[in-house]
Design a binder for these strands. Structure first.
Lengths: 186, 186
DNA sequence: GACCTTAACGCAACATCTTTGCGTTAATTT
DNA sequence: AAATTAACGCAAAGATGTTGCGTTAAGGTC
């Protein structure tokens, strides 16, 4: 069941959505494992389970919705004055956030629903990188290639987080960026 | 609940595992969406639901177990006579298999359980690449760097499959490999 | 601002799935 | 061959998921 388009944005609907999101947030912090249940969330949010089922369909979709909301950027990446440092700062922060226990849980939630949530998150990253590129252009710098950064910096970081075979340390991030800069110009 | 170590490997245990795996396989082919249930699988396998719950714990873990079994390589990658073509063939086949509807479903299943299944699959890929490297060494060729291939060829492919923002076409795979070869030697 | 329309919610009954105790079967050990 | 015990089936109990229907409140109309 697809997440419905919310026609009514004000008042009760928004209040309940906020309450449910908050409840998931709290319970998610408590239970290390994903043993959260819809009835639990409903109780914590002061809402009937049927409300959650009708609105989100099932637990994975609800968790994915909450995860996307948390992953949705609230501010542009920091402006450090130069493109190289902007990109480094963004990537290191990205790796740190995503590899944290909370970040891993959010990623898992995003992928656990058979909806289009993953592509949304993909868009968030692309948007941020676009911001950095535009900022670089405004400064007169030659911007990096967004697809290149996604393929050869973001993708390896995400891969190792997902497969859990390696930690995306700041050193590792910087090595990926250094490798990118050493590439022959296209 | 962790997947139990199977102390008893013969007879009934193995027979039931095979029956359940087959049932998941059949039902998975039928239902496009992941609306498979444990009772369904149990009925198709001629087994009681409680057997499945006791042995696998929950549906995601069972699906992940089946997925890993299907992703487990049954044969070494094809020997084409030279390292470059070996690697190209392996990567293109990998991309094709993983990006197919079945492949995407398997990947999702692997990640949907909070177990160590992902790292196993990661190992399968690494093993295959190791085989190619050893084969290259035996031929007297200078082998590629496995981590490099994982980070800059496999990872981008997996990333785009997961996020669904781009198709890993053969052309795209070859471009990734070409980019790798154009890298300055480390 | 009072009235109408309708999306969204709560309640409750029902259906389905999950868990668990206990007796039985069969694989492994001695 | 007998003893031991892991794994299974059955069935009851518990928890979760679904749905019809009346009620509440948001958005629109006059």
């Amino acid at each position: 069941m697809a997440l419905k388009e919310r026609i009514r944005v004000g008042g009760r609907s928004a209040r309940i959505q906020a309450a449910v999101h908050d409840a998931v947030h709290e319970l998610g912090a408590l239970t290390t494992r994903n043993q959260i249940t819809v009835p639990q969330i409903a109780a914590a949010a002061g809402v009937t389970p049927s409300t959650i089922y009708r609105r989100w369909g099932d637990l994975p979709t609800l968790l994915a919705d909450v995860a996307v909301a948390r992953l949705r950027p609230i501010a542009d990446p920091e402006d450090t004055g130069a493109m190289a440092s902007d990109l480094t700062a963004f990537i290191e922060q990205y790796a740190e956030e995503m590899s944290s226990p909370v970040g891993r849980a959010l990623i898992r939630d995003v992928f656990s629903s058979d909806q289009s949530f993953p592509s949304q998150c993909c868009g968030f990253t692309a948007d941020h990188l676009t911001t950095l590129v535009e900022r670089a252009r405004a400064r007169g710098e030659t911007p990096f290639d967004i697809d290149e950064v996604i393929d050869h910096v973001v993708a390896p970081i995400v891969y190792h987080i997902l497969y859990g075979d390696r930690e995306p340390t700041p050193d590792y991030c910087r090595a990926l960026l250094a490798r990118l800069r050493s590439m022959p110009a296209t």
